[in-house]
């Protein structure tokens, strides 16, 4: 076990209960996703795991040993990429990576080659001598990651590393994380973007209000809910009478409007598309587009908590 969080509770001075009996485990070689809306306790969990925050109850182990602020031997094997870009504006890209790598690696020669590798890894070769203020948001995020991984840690914790990043940079970051995992690092990845977590994580913990609401592989999580399919039909005009018609179709769980889009949610089993098309034909219902999708992690979260991930 790489990380073991056992019944951890954390209450802030203002009385906010950030974590309530939180428990989960991260196994070696996993890309472990911590998914939850903003304020669900993801960053607090990470800060507790890293002993950056004190917690009033519970126990945290890393590499099978109890984690405390003084366990520098454990810290030496951890890489941390904070949510906010944490670099020195007075140092160049290369100098920043060298400094943060130097917190773990004393040997200058070894450090130089590690810094070069990290710069290569995040594709910042053309920006080695650039100061952070001259970098775009996406490049800054890549620098932030390079600073956290240059010393080749065994465990890498990334706290929402793609916030406010353009899609191209986001893909590069996600590809990089998968690459790091393939190189042998265990990854803990927090995000409120379900698509990202779905794309790269092999095991997912869904959090809300400081608690684990569900966990498992993405397939297992989706299998846990009743929803099988969501059909969205864009109509020229909204007609409330249609709702009753669609609700009479077999296996329909729910039917409602989102503006001009009629949403039909069906349970597990065969697709409801043929039935929906037949109904619209019979009643001469005109439509602009029709779209069917399988359940997402957002649907999982919605079904468990009654609210959307992005609320």
């Amino acid at each position: 076990m790489i990380v073991k969080v056992e019944n951890v509770s954390k209450t802030y001075k203002n009385g906010v209960k950030a974590l309530q009996n939180l428990s989960f485990e991260v196994r070696e070689g996993e890309i472990f996703g911590l998914l939850g809306p903003n304020g669900s306790g993801k960053t607090t969990s990470i800060n507790c795991i890293l002993s950056l925050l004190k917690y009033e109850a519970g126990n945290i182990e890393i590499f099978g040993e109890s984690m405390t602020p003084e366990r520098y031997d454990l810290k030496a094997q951890i890489g941390y990429v904070p949510q906010q870009v944490a670099v020195f504006n007075e140092l160049t890209v290369e100098e920043n990576i060298d400094y943060f790598c130097g917190l773990y690696v004393k040997d200058k020669q070894k450090r130089k080659s590690l810094v070069d590798e990290a710069i290569d890894f995040v594709s910042l070769n053309d920006y080695r001598k650039f100061y952070p203020k001259k970098l775009s948001g996406g490049l800054l995020r890549r620098l932030n990651i390079a600073c956290g991984i240059a010393h080749k840690p065994r465990l890498i914790i990334l706290d929402e590393p793609t916030v406010a990043v353009d899609p191209q940079s986001r893909n590069k970051i996600l590809e990089g994380i998968v690459k790091l995992n393939k190189q042998g690092a265990t990854i803990v990845y927090t995000s409120h973007y379900m698509e990202e977590v779905e794309q790269i994580c092999s095991y997912i913990v869904i959090m809300d209000k400081g608690q684990v609401v569900s966990h498992g592989t993405k397939e297992k999580l989706k299998a846990m809910i009743n929803l099988g399919e969501t059909i969205e039909i864009t109509l020229p005009n909204r007609n409330e009478a249609y709702l009753d018609l669609f609700r009479q179709l077999p296996n329909v769980l729910d039917c409602f409007y989102k503006d001009r889009i009629l949403v039909v949610k069906s349970g597990k089993g065969q697709t409801n598309i043929p039935n929906v098309l037949q109904l619209m034909n019979e009643h001469d219902i005109k439509y602009e587009t029709i779209y069917s999708s399988l359940p997402t992690l957002n649907d999982v979260f919605l079904e468990i908590t009654g609210k959307e991930l992005r609320d």
Binding site: N47, L50, L52, P69, Y80, P82, F100, L103, C147
Partner: peptide
């Protein structure tokens, strides 16, 4: 925080 995670 980043410094605190370091091994110094």
């Amino acid at each position: 925080r980043r410094n605190n995670i370091g091994s110094i």
